[in-house]
């Protein structure tokens, strides 16, 4: 709008004079117009990227994904983020409304590519509204499989979030020789159910008996944790979805009651586990962003295969290891990051 007076000025002073006999004012107008064209063309060329997070900021996983996205996309396109916050608002109605909000934003803002992080964004936005549409989507953080969403669509690609379950089991066998019973503790959420299913599937290959304990409160979690100490291995799923989670009290409780090998795939659950092989949320965000850039460069989403994440990290919580009788093999001690040393 600020250009309008200048344009009007240029028009009012007559094009012939403006072009043939430019004065100081005309020259200024010409410079401003040229500058404006450059700005507009730059703006026109700048692609729009929409990042839709299923959860909220402050949630460790989501923060990691966002970090990865921004690391790649910052400065490459106009990035706009919308958090659906469905971790804390689990009602179907809320999620659907939020999905509609996302849809309205997409329809109005018309992004060149949309990154959809985690399941709810895929389930409630891509699947119902944008299957095979002209708007390319890159998903990430979808746990284990995209089968339930029917991916790939011609406009959808992305990275599947897989936990290194097999690798985890391979390693715990180096820690404990006889493993029969495993207890899986997690929040009572869809994600945890899927995670458990994956663990259960892998456990079958190793002939482990695995039982799930999905809870909705810290007290329940503590109780389940205490009871699970009699098993050979306790697998800690994500606590995300337990609203009254009190990290400090849980940490103290765990340290007091831990007896058996407690493992996890989540970095943020390492304060309560002895050994962990954790996914790296940044990898999800980075891949999604790289794919989005390639799409912006002209690569079709269908030309990008859906791949799983391939990076993970290894942790050993020494403070908890000390309070148990478990002996950690030297190879793991050499490869794993040690936490809890400060205690």
């Amino acid at each position: 709008m600020w250009l309008l007076p200048w344009i009007c000025n240029a028009l009012s002073c007559g094009w012939r004079k403006f072009i043939l006999f430019p004065g100081v004012v005309e020259m200024r107008v010409a410079i401003v117009l040229l500058f404006s064209i450059l700005v507009f063309s730059d703006a026109a060329l700048a692609a729009r990227c929409l990042f839709v997070s299923s959860y909220h900021r402050g949630y460790a996983w989501s923060d990691g994904v966002e970090r990865g996205v921004r690391k790649v996309l910052d400065g490459k396109c106009e990035l706009r983020q919308l958090d659906m916050d469905t971790k804390r608002n689990k009602s179907e109605e809320y999620i659907r409304n939020k999905a509609l909000e996302v849809k309205h934003l997409i329809d109005s803002w018309k992004p060149d590519v949309v990154i959809a992080a985690d399941d709810n964004a895929a389930k409630y936005v891509i699947v119902p509204y944008y299957r095979d549409s002209n708007i390319p989507f890159v998903f990430c953080g979808i746990n284990w499989s995209v089968d339930e969403y029917g991916f790939p669509y011609k406009n959808v690609t992305g990275m599947v979030e897989v936990a290194p379950v097999r690798q985890l089991f391979e390693n715990i066998e180096t820690i404990r020789t006889k493993i029969h019973r495993i207890v899986y503790i997690g929040a009572d959420t869809l994600t945890e159910k899927k995670n458990f299913a994956r663990f259960n599937k892998v456990a079958d290959k190793y002939n482990y008996q695995i039982r799930k304990e999905l809870v909705s409160s810290t007290a329940e979690w503590l109780a389940v944790f205490k009871n699970a100490q009699s098993s050979d291995v306790v697998v800690l799923g994500s606590n995300s979805g337990i609203p009254d989670w009190d990290a400090e009290s849980v940490k103290r409780y765990v340290k007091t009651h831990i007896k058996t090998l407690v493992i996890t795939n989540h970095e943020w659950m390492m304060p309560y586990a002895i050994f962990g092989m954790t996914k790296i949320p940044d990898e999800q965000g980075e891949w999604a962003a790289l794919s989005a850039l390639k799409i912006l460069e002209g690569l079709k989403p269908s030309a990008i295969a859906i791949v799983p994440n391939r990076k993970w990290d290894m942790y050993i919580n020494k403070s908890l290891l000390k309070v148990t009788t478990i002996t950690m093999p030297e190879t793991l001690l050499l490869k794993s990051k040690l936490i809890g040393n400060e205690e």
Binding site: W144, S145, V160, E161, V162, A305, I306, P308, N309
Partner: peptide
């Protein structure tokens, strides 16, 4: 492979 996350592999 598909189970590992390579959807459609």
């Amino acid at each position: 492979m598909r189970d590992e996350g390579y959807a459609g592999f």
